[in-house]
């Protein structure tokens, strides 16, 4: 036990360097947003808070991120559960699909989506719907990996059979057994999807643009006119993401039988 409590200069140095690397840009942005020449001022924040377009863009992005998380969950969770139970040979194919969003650049994807969805049976280019669906696609790897790891960390097969032998159907098993036991994976996947959807710019700008302004597009518009306000917006968006993450982690930790849920599990 002595070893664990011993001070390790090497380990601490790594931690300090990591903290510096992560915090310096954030603190610099905060500092920039609060200074005007030599003086500290909150004028950038005041201007922003008086701008109704900010709240509208923020609302759009929060709605978009929430719908993306829900859509991803509804698509990914039952699919992976089913594949794990009944069709393990389909797993490599699914993995290939989840890598596609990384391979195709956002601009190429946006052009492809515009081509397909400008006309035809689903003319949804320029509407928020196309953003939800394309975000689901782009963030698929995050949700897929998180839920797949979680499903593999429990004995999905035997737990399902145990539930079946007690009279549970597929939906009941998912609801009472599988979901509560993979909650850490669902939470971490949801957080990743939520924050990536909240921060996505390229697709939002190309597919919908000013027709339905999202928060990152708003930041970009403001940034062109006033860098200080853009910095203030970056700080605000960090705080929002952070608050949402804390809320989700806190609520997941209250689930019975789950100890120390963290992003790392």
């Amino acid at each position: 036990m002595r070893k664990i409590t011993q001070f390790r200069p090497g380990g601490s140095l790594v931690l300090v360097l990591f903290a510096v690397y992560m915090l310096v840009p954030l603190l610099a942005t905060l500092n920039f947003s609060l200074t005007l020449g030599e003086n500290y001022t909150t004028v950038a924040y005041e201007k922003l808070l008086r701008n109704e377009a900010l709240f509208e863009a923020l609302w759009h992005s929060l709605l978009l991120a929430t719908l993306t998380v829900l859509g991803s969950l509804i698509l990914t969770l039952p699919t992976l559960y089913w594949v794990q139970l009944k069709l393990p040979q389909a797993k490599p194919l699914l993995e290939f699909f989840t890598l596609l969003p990384f391979i195709v650049p956002p601009i190429v994807m946006a052009l492809g989506l515009i081509r397909i969805y400008s006309s035809g049976p689903f003319p949804i280019t320029g509407t928020p719907q196309i953003l939800v669906f394309s975000y689901m696609m782009v963030s698929l790897p995050f949700m897929f990996r998180a839920i797949d790891n979680a499903l593999q960390s429990i004995d999905t097969h035997t737990l399902t059979e145990a539930a079946q032998s007690l009279g549970a159907g597929t939906f009941t098993t998912l609801r009472y057994i599988i979901i509560p036991n993979i909650l850490p994976g669902i939470v971490s996947g949801s957080l990743l999807v939520f924050s990536s959807a909240l921060a996505e710019f390229a697709l939002a700008n190309l597919l919908v643009g000013s027709a339905w302004t999202t928060f990152p597009v708003f930041v970009s518009n403001v940034g062109r006119a006033d860098g200080r306000q853009a910095a203030a917006l970056a700080v605000i968006s960090f705080v929002i993401t952070w608050l949402v993450s804390i809320t989700i982690l806190w609520s997941a930790n209250r689930a019975p039988g789950q100890n120390n849920i963290s992003l790392n599990r």
């Binding site: 035997t158 145990a162 539930a163 079946q164 009279g167 057994i177 036991n181 039988g257």
Partner: peptide, 21 residues
């Protein structure tokens, strides 16, 4: 289907539901 057979089963790996007391 298995869930309508009214057959109880005990597994080698116990298979207790970890989220329940």
């Amino acid at each position: 289907p298995a869930n309508r057979r009214k057959i109880g089963m005990v597994f080698q790996s116990y298979a207790l539901f970890p989220n329940m007391t």
